[in-house]
């Protein structure tokens, strides 16, 4: 994996590197064991301290971290018999959204998730996780198929937003997103959405009309990127930190506003420090969430979802 380090992560990463070196030594010579344990503890503590005081814009940076686990990283870790299904049957296959069927702890499920790439070549293929209309139409195909065969849907949200381009407009980006919202609203199966990284506006919401919405500890979800917001409000994209604070986009904010139901904790230093541990924690919360929804009838599931979103908003009557 390419190493990518944010400035405020540097002290943690330096310590983690030392731990790694020491671990190699300790494997040969047990006299290094106490020192290794001391250093491991120190690294964990430092990570916890630094991460406890992250500002909103720093959390945004973590949510976009190049080493962060993406949809396929989670699928690889807790989905078996995975078969990726491609294409919208209308125009193309969109690499920015992956979808398919697989087994989650014995249950067959349908999965739809945004997919970012690592490195230039893969990012070109994935369009940096920014879907075109065909991505959303593929998602609709999956939602409808899940409904037809009564399979639960797990979605993973991680996108800067829907792609703003000429082709996307020609092929109806707006209609594709709107139709995806409608398809999720009417599906008669359990839907669980998890914001695993960046939740960028309508392009994220098209995977987000769920019975239960989870967010990873350092995931974010926003109507507009902090940079875009700052550019509009102050004609100054560099004031993104202020915008990030104003927009209330971090996991605790989202729970407080009722937009998200539960936060999934990340390993010390963020999910990118330990993909296995991050996946294992998410797997457990997903499983509990799925069990809680399994007893509901088809009608209850649709009504449940309706009530959940019906209640969102703040106004004076």
């Amino acid at each position: 994996m390419a190493t990518f380090v944010l400035p405020f992560e540097k002290p943690i990463v330096d310590l983690v590197d030392k731990v790694r070196e020491l671990r190699a030594l300790a494997a040969k010579d047990s006299r290094f064991e106490p020192e290794l344990r001391r250093l491991e503890e120190k690294a964990g503590q430092l990570a916890r301290e630094i991460f406890q005081h992250l500002t909103p814009i720093q959390k945004v940076q973590i949510s976009r971290h190049a080493n962060r686990p993406y949809t396929l990283d989670y699928i690889r870790r807790f989905i078996t018999d995975w078969i990726e299904l491609k294409g919208d049957r209308r125009f193309a296959d969109d690499g920015a959204i992956v979808s398919g069927v697989g087994t989650f702890r014995g249950r067959s499920v349908v999965i739809v998730g945004h997919q970012k790439g690592r490195g230039t070549k893969e990012n070109m293929k994935r369009n940096f996780g920014m879907p075109q209309p065909e991505g959303y139409r593929k998602a609709i195909r999956m939602y409808e198929m899940a409904d037809r065969f009564q399979l639960p849907i797990l979605t993973f949200i991680d996108t800067p937003g829907a792609y703003p381009g000429i082709g996307a407009e020609e092929r109806g980006q707006s209609e594709a997103i709107g139709a995806a919202l409608a398809a999720m609203a009417r599906a008669t199966v359990p839907i669980i959405a998890t914001i695993i990284g960046e939740g960028g506006s309508g392009g994220a919401l098209a995977l987000g009309v769920a019975n239960k919405v989870l967010v990873l500890e350092y995931g974010c979800y926003s109507v507009i990127s902090p940079e875009g917001c700052a550019a509009i409000l102050w004609k100054d994209g560099s004031r993104a930190d202020e915008a990030a604070t104003q927009l209330k986009i971090t996991a605790p904010d989202l729970v407080q506003l009722g937009v998200v139901d539960e936060i999934v904790s990340e390993p010390a230093g963020g999910a990118h420090q330990d993909h296995d541990e991050a996946a294992s924690r998410l797997e457990n919360v997903l499983w509990q969430s799925l069990l809680a929804l399994e007893g509901k009838s088809r009608e209850e599931l649709v009504d449940d979802r309706y009530r959940r979103f019906r209640a969102l908003g703040a106004f004076v009557a």
């Binding site: 709107g178 919202l181 409608a182 609203a185 009417r186 506006s201 309508g202 919401l205 987000g208 009309v209 979800y221 926003s222 109507v223 507009i224 917001c229 509009i232 409000l233 104003q246 927009l247 209330k248 986009i249 904010d253 989202l254 506003l257 937009v259 979802r305 309706y306 979103f309 019906r310 969102l312 908003g313 703040a314």
Partner: peptide, 23 residues
């Protein structure tokens, strides 16, 4: 489009209104 000043709650109005349209 969505109203920035109400943040994520504005985004949620898209899901809410389309759900009502589906009904």
């Amino acid at each position: 489009g969505a109203r920035m000043q109400e943040g994520i709650l504005s985004l949620m109005q898209m899901a809410k209104s389309v759900s009502a349209l589906e009904r």
